[in-house]
Computed example of a mutant assay.
Amino acid sequence: MQLDAAQRVVLAPDKFKGTVSARHLVGVMAAAIAELSPTTVVSALPVADGGDGSVEAALSAGWRADTVPASDAWGDELVATVARLDDRAIVEVASICGLGSRQPTPDQAASATTRGVGRAVAVLLDQGVREITLALGGSVTTDGGAGLLEALGCELCDSAGQPLAPGGAALGTLARVRTTGLHPGLRDLRLVLAGDVDTPMVGPDGSAEMFARQKGADDDLIARLSAGLAHAAPLLEDAFGARGAALRPGSGAAGGLAWAGLLLGGQLRSGAGVFLDLLDAADTIRGADLVITGEGRLDAQSLRGKAPVSVARLAGAFGVPTVAIVGSNRLPLESTGTAPFAEVIALDRIDPACARDSGLTCRLVGQATRTLVEATLDLSTNTENGARP
């Protein structure tokens, strides 16, 4: 069975978090298409939306890997891999102070800090980097970016003049802010804050209320974190001249790290949009016959601009159909008609064990790729010329 040699398929999945990387998924999909039709042109476009996998997506687009010293959410030293291109860099927050597979205790959640991210940024500024994109997804912190600010030279002290303890639980004791020691490189920095949530930092649907529980906080700590962020917000915003930033949609990303970025003059952008631009996705998708995307879980949050939906909307602007292979499809029934996909295959409906088995996931992705390519491109069976049915 052969496709028209002129046909082209773009492979643009995000990762299946905790199971298979986006780059590996592209390889699996490409192999399945090559088996089905060796003459089909395949364009590889592994994508990200500001979470883990963001640096890998940049590397696939020709950026180079570099390393910088940093520390994790509890101060343990580490070496972080960042992506570099000329005087630009991408820092993946999840690789420095990420949740990963951890299950923090409330005490650990209370003291988790973004200082390590600030250390990485400071090193890049020392090296002459003038544009830094912070990929905000996957953090374990809820400190409002206080650690980042301190690592960049901001002084945060309590009423006795002592530096605050690490973590969001200490923000309620903030009494004095000094910005005179901020890193001079910040003056010329273009800071891009790439995230996929529209949560504000403070308020009834703020960062602590929406995300701190999954980072190890209990009810008491969530209340303390919320109160601390609300207390610190006006003090820091007055010091930086950025009143109201804590109420902006998206400022609550990464436990308020996005808010700290706004204080430094950063620009909030959709993580998916940032990486689609970085990958020149429009040029790759324009003129294709089909786009295959996917992610581990398709749900209502996906419709708010996560990578697969952003890919499908971009493809739709060029009249290119998009199909999706996902680990699980949890879109509300009333939203199904608004999802911009020609078809969706959910692997857990074929075999629920795929969520725990990367090998099984890859096999199912290969099968689903063949099914979608045949169905969407309307292949016909031709046994007379030796093609496989």
Results as ranks from 00 to 15, higher is better:
A146Q: 01
R64G: 07
L276I: 09
D357E: 12
R388N: 11
T338R: 08
G244T: 13
G265A: 09
R187P: 00
K215A: 08
V129N: 01
L364Q: 01
S37N: 07
L164A: 04
D277C: 05
T113C: 13
G271P: 10
A288W: 06
I132W: 00
L3P: 05
G53A: 01
G18W: 12
A300E: 09
Q267V: 15
P340I: 12
V79Q: 10
P352D: 08
R190I: 11
R243G: 14
L78V: 06
R8K: 14
L11T: 09
G319K: 01
A272V: 14
R243H: 11
L182P: 02
A65Q: 14
R356S: 12
S139D: 04
T39R: 14
D188V: 11
A122H: 03
E384C: 05
Q7F: 00
P13Y: 09
R64C: 12
A80H: 02
L333I: 15
A260L: 07
V68E: 09
R269A: 14
V9S: 03
A242H: 14
L59Q: 05
A272S: 15
G203F: 07
V323K: 00
P204M: 05
A288I: 03
A6G: 13
L164M: 08
P249M: 07
A375F: 14
L78R: 10
D198P: 00
A307Q: 12
W63G: 01
F275R: 04
E77F: 00
R84N: 03
A239R: 04
G137E: 15
I90Y: 00
Q103R: 15
G167M: 10
G255D: 08
G118T: 11
P46E: 07
A194V: 13
L229V: 05
L360K: 04
A375M: 05
E92T: 04
Q267D: 15
R330M: 13
I132A: 01
K306W: 02
A151L: 08
T81K: 10
L379M: 14
R84Q: 06
G228P: 06
G167W: 15
T114E: 00
K15R: 07
G244Q: 05
G172V: 15
R187S: 15
V82K: 02
D14I: 04
V344A: 04
